[in-house]
Deep mutational scan, measured.
Amino acid sequence: MSRVPSPPPPAEMSSGPVAESWCYTQIKVVKFSYMWTINNFSFCREEMGEVIKSSTFSSGANDKLKWCLRVNPKGLDEESKDYLSLYLLLVSCPKSEVRAKFKFSILNAKGEETKAMESQRAYRFVQGKDWGFKKFIRRDFLLDEANGLLPDDKLTLFCEVSVVQDSVNISGQNTMNMVKVPECRLADELGGLWENSRFTDCCLCVAGQEFQAHKAILAARSPVFSAMFEHEMEESKKNRVEINDVEPEVFKEMMCFIYTGKAPNLDKMADDLLAAADKYALERLKVMCEDALCSNLSVENAAEILILADLHSADQLKTQAVDFINYHASDVLETSGWKSMVVSHPHLVAEAYRSLASAQCPFLGPPRKRLKQS
């Protein structure tokens, strides 16, 4: 649940008159999402009104509101027999009622949201009550392989729920002597030191190019640089560091992050930047690179990204790559990247197969709970 924001200063709310007192009302909304995959969808019983329910879910471990999704594969009634019906059901509720908006969509073979439908307002739910769409999607369109909505005969539904909580009022009075504290510009100011090479005390040599930097900042941000300058190493004695395995453009992006906490060109060089972040123990930059690479996972590059993640101990990226390969196994196994990995990294192939087997055979063990970014 997000923290209630402070109200904007009255002088910034309007260029008009300023009242002596004010009130700011925040209506709290808890948002969460749920993904439900139905394997072997074409084998569902086709009687009209037949119901399939998901397991229950909530916004978190401490949330007492429990929900589930309900599907009628062949419609709810005679009117909707040519459609799939989809509903959000409130299973248990400690209150007399709650209000919530919802959005349903289908994830296609690429994991993209399609055929989205959402409620136009927050509906009133009581325990045992459901709301949804009797005519969510035509069955003939859903079952047509050309539309790519049932890869490997799996129907994957994605649901986003927004639950309306209580409202909170914050009130106060205006004073004539309003003090406005300026925003912190530390990142910009440190970035200026790097860009202008002011007050530098060490030189970093990268592929024949020299960059002036500040030992204190490098040591504070990177345990690797800290070790170089702290001990009686040649880098500490000469205040000069030779860097041979990072390209200059990648190095500059890494230094921008060290000084400012930002990497504006990360998406263009996420793979190389991940390697640099791993070498210099820049954990936050490493996770930022993992996130960017996750966003660009595809059938063509899944094997290469899995190898990269394994090489640099990028655990979150590795998990996402394995899950992606499992979901698109029939396509990924035909790529040149996968065939190369079979020869060069057989242990990763074995890991992917083990994960695929456990996903398809849940009876082999208890269900695993899916539970950071600093």
Rank of each mutant, 00 (worst) to 15 (best):
D331G: 12
T260P: 00
D291Y: 04
K369W: 03
I305Y: 03
I170V: 02
E47H: 02
E118R: 10
S226D: 15
E300N: 01
K252G: 07
C159I: 08
R284E: 04
C68T: 15
P17R: 08
K372Q: 05
A357M: 01
P7S: 06
K286Y: 03
Q26H: 09
A19T: 03
K103A: 03
L88H: 01
Y259C: 06
A213L: 14
W22T: 00
A292V: 12
P366M: 14
F102V: 00
M228W: 15
E112I: 13
A321V: 03
N40S: 07
A146F: 08
V168A: 01
P367I: 05
K369H: 03
F57W: 00
G128H: 03
V342T: 08
T175F: 06
G337W: 06
I170T: 01
P248C: 05
F102E: 00
D267A: 08
D267L: 12
R70F: 14
D272E: 01
V241F: 03
A213R: 07
A219Q: 10
F57Y: 02
I217G: 00
E20M: 01
L311Y: 13
S14P: 11
K95G: 10
R70P: 01
E249N: 05
E78L: 11
N72V: 11
E247V: 04
E113N: 08
Y83F: 05
Q26T: 10
E183L: 09
L356H: 05
F136R: 02
P367A: 13
E230T: 14
S58Y: 06
A19S: 11
K81G: 12
W194E: 07
V168I: 10
G261Y: 12
C205Q: 15
F133R: 14
V343F: 01
N174E: 08
K129C: 11
F158W: 09
R138A: 07
K103R: 12
F141R: 09
G49T: 04
V179A: 06
K318N: 13
Q360T: 12
N301V: 05
G49P: 01
T156A: 07
I307G: 06
E235D: 06
F363N: 13
M288E: 06
L190P: 08
A207G: 15
S222G: 05
L218F: 05
C44W: 05
A303W: 07
P182M: 02
G75V: 10
V332P: 00
M255N: 11
L186G: 02
I52N: 02
F363D: 14
K238F: 03
P182S: 02
L306A: 12
F363M: 15
F102G: 00
P264V: 12
V322R: 11
S6C: 05
R370T: 04
E112G: 08
C159K: 00
H214C: 14
F57S: 01
V126C: 14
S96W: 15
I27F: 03
A227T: 05
S162N: 03
A309M: 00
A207C: 11
V343D: 09
E283Q: 02
R368F: 11
K372H: 14
Y24N: 11
M13R: 04
E189F: 07
L142F: 03
M117W: 09
A359D: 12
R138W: 01
K286V: 03
Y24W: 15
E253V: 07
S222H: 00
E304L: 05
V332Y: 00
P366T: 14
S336R: 12
E160C: 08
Q173E: 02
S2I: 09
P9E: 13
V51S: 07
C93M: 13
S358K: 11
F136P: 07
A122M: 14
R70I: 14
A359H: 02
V206D: 15
C203V: 15
K154Y: 12
T175G: 08
A19W: 13
L317Q: 05
E210M: 11
N174S: 02
P5K: 02
I325W: 11
S355Q: 08
L84G: 09
H312E: 01
C205R: 11
R124E: 12
F363I: 15
V241D: 05
L348A: 10
L266F: 06
P10E: 03
I137R: 04
N108A: 15
V206N: 08
C23S: 13
M269N: 02
I52T: 05
E230I: 15
F229H: 15
A219L: 15
W131C: 07
A263C: 09
G208Y: 14
V164Y: 13
E20Y: 13
R70K: 10
S2M: 13
